[in-house]
Design a protein around this nucleic acid. Structure first.
Lengths: 304, 304
DNA sequence: GACAGAATCGTCTAAATCGACTGTTTAATT
DNA sequence: AATTAAACAGTCGATTTAGACGATTCTGTC
């Protein structure tokens, strides 16, 4: 198992902006303490690297990839990660939020796990603390903004180059639903799966979404509903949207915590999902290009 | 993609059109932030170099070498750029939007010009086309989302190193104002100017903003008002916010197209601005006088 | 126009860093 | 346990940088 306290020379080199050779020499000269494996590989203690970084006046935001290897602050398990993210969001520590999310991704945490098991629960707890008066609204807003920024950055990381024609997914959140995060998470997982995504964002009238389906002819339509003002008008408009999509052969994936069982029973849809893992799995059945990871050591998720 | 955020003194010298010796001296004098390797080599953060390049007028700044990636053709004049961005936004061409915005920044277009002369007008035209029925809501939403994504990416580019304590700016948009873009543009220009920014985003109750001022003790409070539901209640709450800020010695900068002349006449504020250029200029009067490099040497660029 | 001060430039050597090479180690998959 | 591809170690030459020095050029003033 990879002991999460240790990092490799290459990781240190990338973060510190120097060559691998330099890091090796520093270790040999005693500037950086390190342990060696039985085979001779250098294993650097994260704390030592961080100490050197502080001494050299490093910008915090560039230390993100280092946390990817697993720091005490970036736990190995998703529950601990969620807890850490929650704290970082509540404190408003933007650098830490970025480090945690990016680090988890680079360490190999699947994006749907990241969405369903880390980001969504953390923001839900923030929202709960706000509703119960434990924190002020501005704490929630600040955390949400930090999350959005980190997600946009992550989306930029996972988006593959536009090689070949990728299937198009269209989606958003309905009118009066102000939550940007859920549609952003949907965009994230779909992009990770190789889709081309048009995210109309929150507060999108369903009638307008219907026009978009007509014009863009997507291969998939998703709808995340976190908040509903009027269920009846929503149902009416949604049925029209579904009818149109069905006519065009566009599958409709719905989700979101505002869709109660009773409400869902009155809705037609192609698939319903509790989280992004469902959406991702469903999308994969539609997209033919399901690439399997190569053998051997898993590829580092760096993208060009 | 050469995504190394660090650059060497020689690269900086070439880009800024000055000698290597000068760059070294600037770093030693604290004009340019940098950290040193264990061997003493200076490592500069790209964002810091770019900010310096914009703050002072260099004889020949050729930002090209720092960005190897060949981008789409970026028009030279802001009007053409705005037109190109408008078309890209309306078409939903996300890659083009990113290229235009980032390309303009890299070409040396100041961020306040980018905000006031390109992004804001383009989105305003999109909004106008939507109101007049020329395009559908989803076009507007799609364009807005693309803009937000591109801006978040740009913010990541301009954010500087955390070395030293930077002044804190706090801000957002009031309740019922759903526009994310204006507060995002404010965050962009402030970050470009070296501020640390807490952006509470749209739809922030002013009472909550008041609590945030109390808790965070910022050096500057900004408020962008693009839409107002009820001017009277806004005024009441705003006056309380201003009173509290004034008591704490926090200057208040307001702006946004919802603040009409008559409304503004009834508001106290430290400064009002039509655009981000005003905000940036005002913020610079507050920011501790950062040492600026003396005049560059305009002639003789050839080297042996 | 001449002067003084300041800022910049190019050049030098020692030192630090980089990149490429080959053989070895690691760890996930079968 | 065997397989396999990625990542690492060790080495060496090529390149780059730091630091210091004097010469050059710019700016403002008399």
């Amino acid at each position: 198992m990879n002991d999460s306290r240790y990092v490799s020379t290459a990781q240190v080199a990338e973060v510190l902006g120097v060559g691998v050779t330099t890091v090796k020499r520093w270790v040999d000269e005693g500037i950086l303490p390190a342990h060696r494996t039985a085979g001779g590989h250098r294993k650097l203690l994260l704390a030592d690297v961080l100490r050197l970084a502080r001494q050299s006046n490093f910008p915090n935001q560039n230390l993100g990839p280092l946390f990817a290897a697993g720091h005490a602050l970036v736990p190995a398990h998703v529950q601990d990660l969620e807890q850490a993210l929650f704290v970082a969001l509540e404190r408003g520590d933007g650098d830490l939020v970025r480090s945690l999310i990016q680090g988890a991704y680079r360490r190999g945490v699947p994006v749907d796990d990241l969405a369903d098991g880390v980001i969504a629960p953390a923001m839900q707890r923030i929202g709960h603390d706000w509703e119960t008066g434990k924190i002020d609204v501005f704490h929630e807003h600040r955390g949400s903004q930090l999350c959005v920024a980190a997600l946009h950055e992550l989306i930029g990381l996972v988006s593959s180059s536009a090689a070949g024609r990728r299937p198009l997914a269209l989606g958003g959140a309905p009118e009066k639903d102000p939550y940007v995060l859920t549609s952003l998470l949907a965009e994230l997982v779909l992009r990770q799966d190789g889709w081309q995504v048009v995210n109309l964002g929150p507060n999108t009238p369903l009638a307008s979404l219907r026009k978009a389906v007509n014009e863009l002819k997507p291969r998939l339509l998703w709808l995340t509903v976190s908040y509903l003002e009027d269920a009846d008008t929503f149902l009416t408009e949604y049925r029209q949207l579904y009818q149109e999509s069905d006519r065009l052969g566009v599958p409709v994936a719905v989700g979101g915590r505002a869709l109660t069982d009773s409400l869902r029973a009155r809705m037609p849809y192609t698939t319903y999902g509790d989280g992004m893992a469902h959406l991702s799995a469903f999308a994969r059945t539609l997209s033919p290009g399901k690439r399997r990871p190569p053998r051997g050591r898993p590829t580092k998720q760096s993208n060009g």
